[in-house]
């Protein structure tokens, strides 16, 4: 029931954001509101069944506003900075053609699937690294475009990211 409510609220909010400005009831036309509720209910029902079939248990962990605040600080600060560096890095490598690729393994030791996903996504968008695969123990296999060390530590690949991701998602 909680899963259904969360999915319903988020899908409805998303629909309302996309259709804002269509009419006179605050910002929305009556038919948009009607179909918004209808489609949000259908989406929530499908998503709930999908999550049940995959055996994912809903948690209330991400509902705390403190985590969202840290997430925003992380996204606007260290993450965005690393992304700009990553692009300049790729641009340099495109021009000079200086590459030494390889796939390395790191063990960040994240506790949940969600935090592993978030770390892998962050790694993909930061300088020189691209996550290729993950095994059952949560080890990440990273394609590194310029291998400096065949046995890198977690900090070599992703700097302070695990610390941030732990604070946000665990």
């Amino acid at each position: 029931m909680i899963a259904f409510a969360v999915f319903f609220i988020f899908s409805l909010l998303f629909y309302l954001v996309l259709t804002a400005g269509s009419g006179n009831i605050v910002f929305w036309a009556p038919e948009e509101l009607f179909f918004g509720v209808l489609f949000a209910a259908i989406t929530a029902l499908l998503a709930k069944r999908l999550f049940q079939a995959m055996g994912i248990k809903p948690t209330a962990r991400m509902l705390s506003p403190k985590r969202w605040l840290i997430f925003l600080v992380y996204a606007a600060g260290p993450f965005f900075y690393a992304m700009i560096l990553a692009n300049i890095d790729v641009a340099c490598r495109v021009i000079t053609g200086k590459i030494k690729p390889g796939i390395v393994k790191i063990s960040p030791g994240m506790k949940t699937d969600f935090s592993t996903t978030m770390l892998a996504n962050s790694i993909t968008l930061t300088p020189g690294t691209l996550s290729v695969d993950v095994d059952k123990k949560g080890n990440l296999y990273i394609h590194w475009i310029f291998v400096k060390d065949k046995q890198p530590s977690v900090a070599d690949i992703c700097g302070s990211f695990p610390k941030w991701v732990r604070r946000i998602a665990e």
Binding site: M83, N87, I99, L130, V132, H143, I145
Partner: peptide, 15 residues
């Protein structure tokens, strides 16, 4: 190869 190309396409197209 495909992996190094993914570097270019993901980072640059996202930003």
């Amino acid at each position: 190869d495909v992996y190094t190309r993914m570097h270019g396409t993901t980072k640059c197209t996202t930003l």
